[in-house]
């Protein structure tokens, strides 16, 4: 058991500590946001699988009481020394308490987010008006520009009057293509799962960094999809016009990481499409596949090695 546990712990820590910083360092992600996203997701799946596998191993391996319980179900007599059983019971109780604590933070958080989003969607459908041109767009009557999407069956892109006024039709088309990509590729769901994972395992650097990096990659992916349909010009212009900050009398200045992401996206759009090394893409996919397959199969082997009850 010790060997399997060490291996799983090794995977959790290696991926958890090194994968994020490594992925963050590479400049290639800017040119290949899709591949970068796959790498991040495979790292996170690897971490989650190894952590859950480790937990299952700790709970099920004899003399842990859950294993004992399984044995009782099989109408066997306990074979393990009492002292071991007591120690393992205490350890199991501590582990289960830890799990309960993490889940009691994470699950309500996700539930609140979903509830909040549903309420937001209901209010939008009451307050906003249907756009005259685009069937899936609702317009909020407000001069500050916003554009966003809410996952729902119909009319899920919301723009404000400020946005409509500032954008020409071709800019608008680019923005809508961007938002429709978010919706089509279920980016909301990914962000929600990421948030859940972060509240379950907040200590690992990879998970922490994924929470800032993955949203940025999703924006780039949506940008790229819009550029493929409408070219980089309209989207870049729309981004410049939609910054919510050239507010009245310049009372507000863009600050913090937000501005740098915006600048980053603009630079990407303005840069001439250079040569994208195909090797990077292939290497990324292979690494991602190996990471996921490796950690999942190790978990499977470890669990298969748990002594069967009788």
């Amino acid at each position: 058991m010790a060997l399997f546990a060490l291996a799983l712990l090794g995977i959790t820590l290696t991926l958890g500590v090194t994968a994020g910083p490594l992925l963050e360092r590479g400049q290639w992600a800017v040119h290949q946001p899709g591949t970068a996203l796959i790498c991040w997701i495979s790292g996170l799946i690897g971490i989650m699988a190894a952590a859950v596998g480790l937990l299952a191993l700790a709970l099920l391996w004899p003399p842990a009481p859950l294993h004992e319980l399984l044995e009782r179900w099989h109408e066997c007599l306990p074979h393990h020394p009492r002292a071991g059983l007591i120690a393992a019971s205490v350890a199991t109780a501590a582990l289960l308490a830890g799990c309960y604590h993490r889940l009691s933070v994470g699950i309500p958080r996700v539930w609140r987010a979903v509830f909040h989003r549903r309420r937001h969607r209901e209010m939008v459908s009451l307050v906003a008006r249907q756009d005259a041109e685009h069937l899936d767009v609702l317009v909020l009557d407000h001069p500050v520009p916003v554009a966003y999407c809410i996952p729902s069956r119909h009319r899920s892109i919301v723009v404000s009057r400020g946005t409509r006024d500032r954008l020409d039709p071709d800019h608008m088309a680019a923005v809508l293509a961007h938002e429709r990509t978010h919706l089509r590729q279920r980016h909301h769901l990914l962000l929600l799962l990421l948030d859940l994972m972060h509240s379950l395992l907040p200590w690992l650097p990879t998970v922490r960094r994924a929470q800032t990096r993955i949203p940025q990659l999703l924006e780039m992916i949506a940008d790229d999809a819009a550029v493929r349909r409408h070219g980089p010009g309209p989207l870049a212009e729309a981004l410049r016009r939609l910054v919510p900050l050239p507010g009245p009398a310049g009372t507000l200045a863009a600050t913090g990481p937000c501005e740098s992401l915006l600048a980053h996206r603009l630079t990407r759009l303005e840069a001439a499409p250079g040569s994208h090394p195909r090797g990077v893409r292939a290497l990324g996919w292979v690494t991602a596949a190996c990471t996921t397959a490796g950690s999942l199969s190790l978990v499977a082997i470890a669990l298969a090695a748990v002594p069967a009850p009788c």
Binding site: R112, A113, R117, A147, E179, L191, A238
Partner: peptide
Amino acid sequence: DQSAILARFAE
């Protein structure tokens, strides 16, 4: 507390 509820176009 309510991160990830909306995907905005700009920041």
